[in-house]
C-alpha cells in the first residue's frame, strides 16, 4: 500500500475528506461574517450564537412542532434572518457612525445574553437530533466510508457559497451592494434605498449562520456552547482570507479545513492551534489577508 510520510494513503485521503467537511462549515460561517463586515463595517461577534440558535431552533421545530429537517432547512434560516433584522433595526443601526469597536461590543453582548438564555433553558449536555432518513448510511469511496449526511453537507455548503458569491459579484443587485459599500452617499443619490440594503445584507449574513446551524444539527451535539467553540476559528479564517473578502473567506475556509485535517493525522495536539499559527504568518507577510485589499 502506498504511503505518504508513513501514513497510508487511504487514511490520509479519509482525513482530508473530513477536513473538507469542517472546512465547509468554516466557509459558510466566515462568508456571512465577510458580507456583514464588508457592507456594514460591523465585526459580528454574535455569529457563533446565531449558528447555535439555528441548530437549537432545528431541534425545537422537530421536538415541539413536528417540523422535519427539510422544512427546517428553509424556515430556520428565515427565522434567524428575521431576528437579524430586528437586531439591526433596533440596535446596530445606531452604531454605524461610531468606531467599529462599539459594534463588536454590542454583538459580543448579544452573543453572551443569547447563550446564557439558551444554557439556562436547555442545560449544557446538549440535545440529540437524528440524521434524516434519506441520509442515513454511508458511501463507500474506496479509501473510506463517508456518511451520506457529510456528503450532503459538502454539496449544500458549496452550493450556498457559490450562489452567494455569484449574487454579490455577478448580478445587478450585487453591483449595487458593492457600490454602496464603497460610497453609500453617492449610491443613495441614484435613488437606491441604502438603509434597506444594509438591513437585507445583515439578514442574509446571519441567515447563513442559521443555515450552517441547521446543517450542523444532525452532525454534532446541539449545545448552547457550540457556537463559542467555533467562532474564534471562524474569525481567524476571515482575517486570513482578508476582512470583507467573499472569495477569500470561501477559499480560506475550505483550505484551512483541509490543513486542520492533515494536522490531526500528523500531530493532532496542534490541530486547534494550527489555524492561528497560519493567521500570524499571513498577517506578517500580508497584513490585509490573502485576498484582502489595503484600504
Amino acid at each position: 500500500m502506498s504511503e505518504v510520510f508513513g501514513i497510508p494513503l487511504p487514511a490520509l485521503l479519509g482525513q482530508l475528506m473530513l477536513g473538507l467537511v469542517n472546512g465547509c462549515f468554516y466557509a459558510m460561517l466566515s462568508l456571512g461574517l465577510a458580507i456583514i463586515f464588508g457592507m456594514l463595517n460591523i465585526i459580528n461577534f454574535a455569529h457563533g450564537a446565531l449558528y447555535m440558535m439555528g441548530a437549537v431552533f432545528t431541534w425545537i421545530a422537530l421536538a415541539q412542532f413536528g417540523i422535519g429537517y427539510w422544512w427546517s432547512l428553509l424556515l430556520v434560516p428565515l427565522v434567524i434572518a428575521l431576528f437579524g433584522v430586528m437586531v439591526e433595526r433596533t440596535m446596530l443601526r445606531r452604531l454605524y457612525k461610531l468606531d467599529n469597536l462599539y459594534g463588536l461590543l454590542l454583538t459580543f453582548g448579544i452573543a453572551l445574553v443569547t447563550e446564557g438564555l439558551f444554557r439556562h433553558r436547555y442545560g449544557v449536555s446538549g440535545l440529540p437530533y437524528s440524521i434524516p432518513e434519506a441520509f442515513s448510511g454511508t458511501f463507500n469511496l474506496g479509501f473510506m466510508f463517508l456518511p451520506k449526511y457529510r456528503a450532503w453537507v459538502i454539496a449544500a455548503s458549496l452550493l450556498t457559497c457559490f450562489t452567494t458569491w455569484f449574487v454579490v459579484e455577478r448580478t445587478q443587485l450585487g453591483a449595487y451592494l458593492r457600490a454602496a459599500t464603497e460610497n453609500p452617499q453617492l449610491v443613495q443619490t441614484f435613488g437606491i434605498n441604502v438603509p434597506a440594503m444594509i438591513t437585507i445584507t445583515y439578514a442574509v449574513g446571519v441567515g447563513l449562520a442559521g443555515l450552517a446551524g441547521v446543517l450542523a444539527a444532525p452532525a454534532t451535539q446541539i449545545s448552547p456552547l457550540m457556537g463559542t467553540n467555533l467562532i474564534i476559528v471562524v474569525f481567524a479564517v476571515v482575517v486570513i482570507g482578508g476582512m470583507g473578502s467573499i472569495l477569500g473567506s470561501i477559499v480560506t475556509g475550505l483550505g484551512l479545513g483541509l490543513i486542520e485535517g492533515l494536522t490531526k493525522v500528523f500531530y493532532s495536539q496542534a490541530s486547534n492551534s494550527v489555524v492561528f499559527l497560519i493567521m500570524a504568518l499571513v498577517l506578517l507577510v500580508r497584513p490585509a489577508g490573502l485576498f484582502g485589499r489595503e484600504r
Binding site: A11, Q15, L18, V21, N22, R150, L230, V265, S268, S271
Partner: peptide, 9 residues
C-alpha cells in the same frame, strides 16, 4: 468541535 478524524484513526 469535530471528533470524526480521531475516530477514523
Amino acid at each position: 468541535p469535530d471528533f470524526s478524524s480521531y475516530l477514523l484513526q
